[in-house]
Amino acid sequence: MASFMAGVTELLALDDFFWRAFWGGMGIVMVTGPLGCFVVWKRMSYLGDTMSHSALLGIALGFLLGINLTLGVLMVALSIALLLFLLQRREELASDAILGTLSHAALALGVLVISMMTWVQVDLMSYLFGDLLAVAVDDLCSIYAGGGLVLMVLLWFWRPLLAITVDEELAEAEGVAVIPLQLLFMVLVAVVIALAMKMIGMLLVTALLIIPATAARHFSRTPEQMALGAVLVGWVSVSGGLNLSMLWNVPTGPAIVTTAVVIFFLSLFASLRRS
């Protein structure tokens, strides 16, 4: 086992912080790509924002209870998802207003709790924007284990999830269990946000969900092509952004997001020229 780990470490150059960051980023966008497509298709990009803004409260909770911070983030994100799901059933509340309310409530509460905990020093910046270059081998393990699990569940339920996204009524009539799948989707988003938070930061997590998917739209004819395209865009953004961040000595998360945005505009122009 030890020699296997050593082999993997050598093969992937995990001794080097750059390569750890590289593999971490590559792993994350492999999940945010396909999942992000669903977020975009369901017009729920604000959902990602709301859940990731709640992450600060999760971190505060983690410190308070002395548990793993990712777990804290996951717990809060899941609670938000559940609350959202229940509130969305009420027709007199607009879903964007619910999201806005929860998002800011969680953010404000998070800052409050963190500032009251005078005994811990929290580097707010690193949680807002993440620190991909600080990724450790442990983090890589949780990214690939957790991310792999999310990806497997997503692929397993791909067809029914897509069916309820295209038309809920049609899917329901053809025997798809709509409500459990809606819940499942929210749980997947919550898990991915908790996984990606440390690396890319709560303010930029949503970007990894939305921008690669949107950039891939112009060149896809089927949902599956768009999901693969989003992964490709994510990979290019991670490698491009990492190199930029080394070259210019700028924060990695923003560099990756900026690269993704550049790809988005390039693909937009290309599609405009084509039509």
């Binding site: 067809r159 295209v166 599956e224």
Partner: peptide, 19 residues
Amino acid sequence: VTIDPILPLNVRRMMTLTA
């Protein structure tokens, strides 16, 4: 049934939406 243009879907794929 309105298909959102955000979601790329051709007829072939539409046919196998639920099975």
